[in-house]
Design a protein around this nucleic acid. Sequence first.
DNA 1: TCATTAATAGCAT
DNA 2: ATGCTATTAATGA
Length: 229
Amino acid sequence: MPKLDESLLTGLPPFSLLDRAQIREILDQAVSRRYDEGTAIFREGHDADRFYLLLDGYLRVIRSTPGGDQIIVLHISPGQLFGIAPALQRNTYPATAIAAAESIALSWPVRVWDDFITRYPGFATESYKTLGQRLGQIQETLTEMATQAVEKRVACALLRMVHQSGRKSDKGIEIAFPVTRQNISDMTGTTLHTVSRLLSAWQKDGIVESTRKHIVVTDPHALVVLSEA
DNA sequence: TCATTAATAGCAT
DNA sequence: ATGCTATTAATGA
């Protein structure tokens, strides 16, 4: 296995308070792996034997409902911890993580979790902070799904992806990972057909521009207006 | 070029 | 207004 460079972790929130030697310790226990687009890093209900940090790429976190269909709960962007079942006192993963684009992640065995928490200042607080943020976000989208009209939900979903992965391009802000209409419908509880119609209409109005699996928001403000309407 | 998968068009509920 | 079937378009082998 290649020796991992310390610059990979310096500056990332969970490790920002640590010195060089501590980061070295952490890296020496880590395993680095690459995941092709569409690959599962771990699956819902399986034994949580490792926890992860996304270095590069994007992930979809998916949960299946009692009804059998799957919904996209949230996305993970580079620098974030994920699969941190030990923080939830769980020994199985609560959701499935799929690489939305080619991704690279570090992972550690769960048995070192308690060690990390006690030995590395800032790691615990940052981990629980991201955990809390995610719970809040899930709550938000959940109530949104139950109460808001479809157009608003899709507008919100696009805005969320823009916020966590938006890159400026010449046309506007582009979503940095491949997204299908099916994906968006899985995030919003509709069908790909409705999403397709909405995107077509918005494209005509100059709010978005989309090609296959690729979306650019050309008028973010108009989308914000739609999401609040 | 063909097989696979994404996106739309048009009809039904 | 939203969902479904059938068709077209794009992509990658």
